[in-house]
């Protein structure tokens, strides 16, 4: 990795952490993405949509 080229505020260029039970293993990076999909889905369903004027 060219550290000079990788100008990130948060450095992810280090070995990943893995979580898992038995045969199930997932990197923290992937888990964040997967969990965020469920969270976004739940928010999309529960947060009230701004109610415009009906015609």
């Amino acid at each position: 990795m060219h550290s000079a080229l990788n100008m990130a505020l948060i450095n992810l260029d280090h070995p990943a952490h893995y979580l898992g039970i038995g045969p199930f293993q997932v990197s923290v990076g992937n888990l964040v993405i997967i969990v965020s999909m469920f969270v976004i889905f739940a928010l999309a369903i529960f947060i009230p949509f701004p109610h415009g004027k009906d015609e």
Binding site: A44, I45, I47, F49, H51, G52, D54, E55
Partner: peptide, 14 residues
């Protein structure tokens, strides 16, 4: 420029 009235949820923006 209009949608059926039931199209009113954030799920529709995805």
């Amino acid at each position: 420029d209009n949608q059926p009235a039931y199209v009113a949820s954030w799920i529709y923006v995805f």
